[in-house]
Structure formats: structure tokens, C-alpha cells
């Protein structure tokens, strides 16, 4: 079912996605630094900055991305960074990390001054991603598809972005059929998560404001 080019695209994107990790020392700090609201706030902010840098490195590897207009590249990244980061965090949370790291991370997020009305939908999203039992190919492709959304604000050449996103969607559709043969709805469910991500993205801007105030 998959053509040679599609297989090459998958392995290329999965490889880039696997390299898409925050530095080891940052991850260690998250699990070791002492624990108070102020510290959690600073650590989560530092981690977010590091995660954006890592996300940009991943995005540079998306075939065709660097051939897009430079300002459109920035508009795409700016419009999708938060969503791609939530998707990546969902993957981390749905993979059982060794000896309780997930619990420590979750606790740190819950006790960093972020309002409960935002934390609940975020962890619901992580749970819904976990339930889909996504394979790494699906995560890598869905992240690329999220970034290559032509309808982000300030995109000048939407067709150019569509031409990159469409083959990715086609490959993801085939991958879902191959990896989830008994779940014809699987691909549709993945796209449904993209809508949920948009809502989270919208709340995130509000949350950031109120978090900074408190």
C-alpha cells in the first residue's frame, strides 16, 4: 500500500521526531529541583523555551518546509508551536516513564500556579491521546501535519503549505489503515484530536496571561 517514497518520508520524519527531545540536563532538572510554585513556574518556562528550540529543529527536517517563504515559516511555527508541544507532552505522558517520573511531572504542573480550569482539559487531552495507542509514526506525522496547517494567521502562500500537508495526510491515512486494521475510525479520531488541540491552544493564551498575573 505504501509507495517507496512514502516509506522514505515516514522513516525520515520518525527519525527527526525521535531527535526532538529536550536536553538531558533539562529533563533531569524537572525531576530533581526542589518543589515550590515559584520554582515550578520558572522550570516550566525554561522547559517551554527549550522545547520550542527543539521543535524548530524538528520542523527544519520536514521535507519542503525550508523552501517555504521565510516569514511563512515563522508564521507556521508561531501558530502551531503550542499545539505541537501539547502533542509531544501527550506522547510523553501516555508512555509509562520509569519509576514515577510522570507523577512527579504531573505534580509539578499541578502545583505551579496554573488555574485548575486549564489543567483539567490539558490532562483530559493527554488521556485521550493515550487511549488512541498511537504508534511513533502516527505521532511524528501528526506533529508535522499540525505544523503544516495552512490556515494559521499571517500565512501569505496557503497553497504552498497545503501542497506540503496533503501528502502527509495521505501517508498518515495509510499508516492508520495498516497499523489499526480493525479500527476504520482511527484516522478520523486522530484528526479529531487536532481540533481538541486548537481549543487547548486558545485556552493556553488566556492561561498564560492569568498565570503571569498570579
Amino acid at each position: 500500500e505504501l509507495t517507496q517514497d512514502q516509506k522514505a518520508l515516514i522513516s525520515y520524519i520518525v527519525d527527526a521526531h525521535n531527535k526532538h527531545r529536550i536536553p538531558q540536563d533539562m529533563a533531569k532538572k524537572l525531576l530533581q529541583e526542589q518543589f515550590n510554585t515559584e520554582e515550578n513556574f520558572l522550570l516550566l518556562t525554561e522547559m517551554a523555551t527549550s522545547h520550542v528550540q527543539v521543535l524548530v529543529e524538528f520542523t527544519k527536517n520536514i521535507p519542503g518546509f525550508q523552501s517555504l517563504d521565510h516569514e511563512d515559516q515563522i508564521a507556521l511555527l508561531k501558530g502551531s508551536a503550542v499545539e505541537a508541544m501539547f502533542l509531544r507532552s501527550a506522547q510523553v505522558f501516555s508512555k509509562k516513564l520509569p519509576n514515577g517520573h510522570t507523577e512527579v511531572l504531573e505534580d509539578r504542573i499541578r502545583r505551579s500556579g496554573i488555574s485548575e480550569e486549564f489543567i483539567t482539559p490539558m490532562f483530559n487531552f493527554y488521556k485521550s491521546i493515550g487511549e488512541l495507542q498511537m504508534m511513533q509514526e502516527e505521532h511524528a506525522l501528526l506533529t508535522a501535519i499540525t505544523i503544516l496547517s495552512p490556515d494559521r494567521p499571517y500565512i501569505k502562500d496557503q497553497q504552498a503549505v497545503e501542497r506540503l500537508q496533503e501528502p502527509m495526510l495521505e501517508v498518515l491515512r495509510k499508516v492508520c489503515k495498516l497499523q489499526h486494521p480493525h479500527e476504520p475510525q482511527h484516522f478520523a479520531r486522530l484528526l479529531g484530536r487536532l481540533t481538541e488541540l486548537r481549543t487547548l491552544n486558545h485556552h493556553h493564551a488566556e492561561m498564560l496571561e492569568s498565570w503571569r498575573m498570579s
Partner: peptide, 21 residues
């Protein structure tokens, strides 16, 4: 903390250089 402008700065710098710089 990374305000939206901060986000754009981080993206511009990362797009220009690579991680090691």
C-alpha cells in the same frame, strides 16, 4: 516568561542558527 513576542524571538533565532550555537 515566554510571551508571544518571546516565542517569535526564540523561533527566529532557532531558524537562523542551529541548536549548538
Amino acid at each position: 516568561p515566554a510571551s508571544n513576542l518571546g516565542l517569535e524571538d526564540i523561533i527566529r533565532k532557532a531558524l537562523m542558527g542551529n541548536m549548538e550555537e
